[in-house]
Design a protein around this nucleic acid. Structure first.
Length: 802
RNA sequence: GCAGUUAUGGCGGAAUUGGUAUACGCGCUAGACUAAGGAUCUAGUGUCCAUUUUAGCGACUUGUGGGUUCGAGUCCCACUAACUGCACCA
């Protein structure tokens, strides 16, 4: 027998699979389909790190198993290649981002291929390819035509020293990450997508999909649906509209708070006696992010609007009005009614500014803290609401408000519309022209793709406009509608755009008539299993579901939801338990692991490393252990005997293992599936032999995890065909349990021994066995049995007294 | 801060979902083979205690403190710590 030499074997089988087109999804639509999807990588300059292969290997195992189960499997790969890091690298090194991207992709591709992942490389896509982004632009036009893309004034982060707009990530501790300059919020007109129009459906349709629970919860909370009321308070002769989830507490309102950006402030500037102070506060608020502003721990600040007074519509009370930065213009109406007795932030604010706190829901002590429990509590000091429970009082108040035309029921969402513009070069150009006469005019579809022009410099312009703005020739164009002079949009799309629909393109990646053909969309939709990082649970997942629902509405795609099943993997950390990063110096390069131990060992370790859903540190010794296991599997060849069947004493072992591996691979428990195979191999070693029939099963089970070594052994053992073409083994449930089993015995709930009984024994039989056991009986001598508990196949518990 | 999640040996983790806690792997200890072992094989390995007249049907143990139950790592309540996301990173 040859020694196990992964380098030779892996190269050999990767070439054979490639030549045989082993993993190409078939265009034959007779077979049942299975679509397994991983999040396509961003081809960064650092190359692959060992975190990438974790989800890829997991779904590779699923894909390989599904092929063995008779499915036509689509398991594709591509590149999410637009983005900030590439652009910043290009600026710094004066290389075209296109060149950087091509180089990074080549490297990633080589690395991924060395792992033996069964991707269908014939369907590879790239979001920066004009034949791809043509359809990203096409989708944008459809959104625009249906009024879901619109322009709005939005605050952006502005570095006062670089004079460019910054991503939130580039703002560190309130200053520019690059130059340390002061960052402030500056208003800019931005393209927005009206995702909030889909908020209800994005929540409700989660009912129909199989996402792990924490992903569903996270999505719901992010969308943040709340039911309450909008109410108009009369302030300085105008109705000031607020949103509240607690209309029942309206009798407890002792002041109001407006966002510093509220448009009324400008209108009231002659009436506000301390307008200068207000302006100073507005300036200060500009330099803070929403995140800093709403932080609960921080000291509440605010300015009272002197000369302005509000009237509480329920009781006519005159109350002061403040501005404070904890009220955001982007949520609700930008103004709130403050009920310090029953809202924590309001309570703290009231304490600081010595504002009255009125208890309107009994049950707590509002002199000590806000009482916010809505489950228990009875309304007091609240006129017609007195004596009601919170939920009833809410309804009663809404009814009252609607009758008096002061307010109305209103559902609100935390979700905000999607800011879709970037003042950047390396993104899809937005296919819209601004005409002085016709306004924003979409480019005709036949002019797509609107190519990203070559520019001299990728630096954003001095006023924060996109680098494209300096391309005067490109910018000056004619209006598609009236033919007059017009200007192109110079902002580009965010990276999210290309990744919001990529899974559709895989279904028909070379189609130039449509984003994918109807037949292919019909056959492959939806994605059966999508695995990705928890960090994409709110944004990417929500954005792509939104686009998909929109495409469904306009008849492009056949399903309401893009992904039938969504799971999530944990991060792989450095050996020191910290996040892997270049600056921490704890990055492990998969190339070195493959070079030293082989791709199969790498794959096996990635799956065996720990709980798939949890973050886990990398361990070189763990890798060695996996290599050792593969060596042991390899050496089984030396003790193989010629019987094609399974020996009698191994029957239970084999069937138990088939069952364990089959089920565990479906529920992300790859680690225990591998543990079961290790235990089986240990058993072969204990026996000192393995039959051909047993070897066959082991290779089939291990195949998806370690495809190269098993394919090689399959051939070396003289089994016919290729391993990847075989059927997945099935287990016989009856053979997974021995006839005689060992169960635990407890006395008063404490483990005291075991019993050998038949697996079908009833309680009487179990107790007979118990009484026949002298050692156990000795322990209850002189005591009275007051209860006997028997859980078949599990345990006997005898409760004694005395 | 808000939202979500997690906590089990020296380490990664397992536990049929309320039924013998620590499977499997790493590490460690001893032995075998060997010129050698950082290769391989065999045995052992939660903590404490007892047993040297012998290896136990002994006590304790799943972040902390309570509770429910014949029985709790698992369920409930209160705490603590850590991780992820927070809308222009992807």
């Amino acid at each position: 027998m040859k020694v196990y030499d992964p380098k030779t074997i892996e190269k050999k089988w990767q070439t054979i699979w490639e030549e045989e087109g082993a993993f190409h999804a078939s265009e034959n639509k007779e077979k049942p389909k299975y679509y397994a999807l991983i999040e396509f990588p961003y081809p960064s300059g650092q190359g692959l790190h060992v975190g990438h292969p974790r989800p890829y290997t997991a779904l590779d195992i699923v894909a390989r198993k599904r092929r063995m189960q008779g499915y036509n499997v689509l398991f594709p790969i591509g590149w999410d290649a637009f983005g900030l890091p590439t652009e910043n690298y290009a600026i710094k090194n004066k290389i075209h981002p296109k060149t950087v991207t091509a180089r990074n992709i080549a490297r990633f591709k080589k690395q991924l291929q060395s792992l033996g992942l069964s991707f269908d490389w014939s369907r590879e896509i790239n979001t920066t390819d004009p034949s791809y982004y043509k359809w990203t632009q096409w989708i944008f036009l459809q959104l625009f035509k249906r009024g879901l893309a619109y322009k709005k004034e939005m605050a952006i982060n502005w570095c006062t020293s670089c004079k460019v707009g910054l991503a939130n990530e580039e703002v560190v501790g309130g200053v520019c990450e690059r130059c340390g300059g002061k960052v402030e919020r500056r208003m800019k007109t931005q393209w927005m997508l009206a995702i909030t129009k889909y908020a209800d459906r994005l929540i409700d349709d989660l009912e129909d999909v199989d996402y792990i629970e924490r992903v569903k919860t996270q999505q719901k909370n992010w969308i943040g649906r709340s039911e309450g009321a909008e109410v108009d308070f009369q302030v300085a002769g105008k109705p000031l509209r607020i949103y509240t989830t607690r209309p029942d507490t309206m009798f407890g309102v002792t002041y109001m708070v407006m966002s510093p950006e509220h448009p009324y402030l400008e209108e009231w500037k002659d009436r506000i006696q301390n307008y200068e102070e207000v302006q100073a506060y507005q300036q200060a608020a500009l330099s803070k992010s929403d995140f800093e502003r709403t932080e609960l721990a921080k000291d509440k600040t605010g300015v009272e609007l002197k000369g302005i007074e509000a009237v509480n519509p329920v009781n006519g009370a005159k109350i002061p009005v403040f501005i404070s930065d904890y009220v955001l213009m982007s949520y609700g109406t930008g103004a709130i009614m403050a009920v310090p007795g029953h809202d924590t932030r309001d309570w703290e604010f009231a304490q600081k500014y010595h504002l009255p706190i009125i208890e309107v829901v009994a049950g707590g002590d509002v002199t000590r803290e806000a009482f916010t429990d809505i489950e228990k509590g009875t309304l007091v000091h609240s006129g017609f609401l007195d004596g009601m429970q919170v939920e009833d009082a809410k309804e009663a108040m809404i009814k009252w408000l609607e009758e008096h035309r002061i307010g109305k029921r209103k559902v609100n969402f935390k979700l905000r519309d999607w800011v879709f513009s970037r003042q950047r070069y390396w993104g899809e150009p937005i296919p819209v022209v601004h005409c002085p006469k016709c306004g924003y005019v979409p480019l005709p579809e036949e002019e797509l793709p609107l190519l990203l022009p070559e520019v001299e410099s990728y630096e954003p312009g001095p006023d924060g406009e996109s680098p494209l703005a300096s391309m005067t020739e490109w910018v000056h164009t004619s209006c598609p509608r009236c033919g007059g002079p017009a200007e192109r949009e110079t902002d580009t799309m965010p990276q999210w755009a290309g990744s919001s629909w990529y899974f559709l393109r895989y279904m028909d990646p070379h189609n130039d008539q449509a984003l994918a053909s109807k037949e292919n969309l019909q056959y492959w939709s939806p994605v059966d299993w999508y695995n990705g990082g928890m960090e994409h649970t709110t944004l990417h997942l929500l954005y792509s579901r939104f686009w998909h629902k929109f495409l469904y509405d306009i008849g492009v795609v056949p399903t309401k939801e893009p992904y039938q099943k969504r799971t999530s993997h944990g991060m792989i950390l450095g050996a020191n338990g910290e996040k892997m990063s270049k600056s921490r110096g704890n990055v492990v390069n998969p190339d070195e692991v493959v070079e030293q131990y082989g791709a199969d060992t790498m794959r096996l370790y990635e799956m065996f490393i720990g709980d798939f859903e949890k973050a886990v540190p990398w361990s070189e010794n763990g890798v060695k252990g996996c290599r050792r296991f593969l060596e042991r599997v390899w050496k089984l060849q030396e003790m193989m005997t010629p019987e094609e069947g399974i020996s009698k004493d191994m029957e239970t072992w084999i069937h138990k293992t088939i069952k364990k591996v089959s089920l565990d691979d479906e529920s992300l428990k790859f680690n225990t599936a591998i543990a079961a195979m290790m235990a089986l191999v240990n058993e072969f070693y204990q026996k000192g032999s393995v039959t051909r029939g047993e070897m066959r099963i082991l290779l089939l089970l291990l195949g998806p995890d370690a495809p190269h070594i098993t394919e090689e052994m399959w051939e070396a053992c003289g089994f016919s065909g290729r391993l990847y073409q075989q059927s997945w083994p099935v287990w016989d449930e009856a053979k997974t349990v021995e006839d005689m089993i060992t169960i635990a015995v407890q006395i008063n709930g404490k483990a005291k021994g075991t019993l050998r009984i038949s697996k079908d024994a009833d309680q009487a039989a179990a107790m007979t066995a118990f009484r026949a056991d002298e050692r156990l009986m000795a322990q209850i001598e002189g005591k009275t049995i007051i209860k006997e508990i028997y859980v078949p196949g599990r345990i006997v518990n005898v409760v004694v007294k005395g």
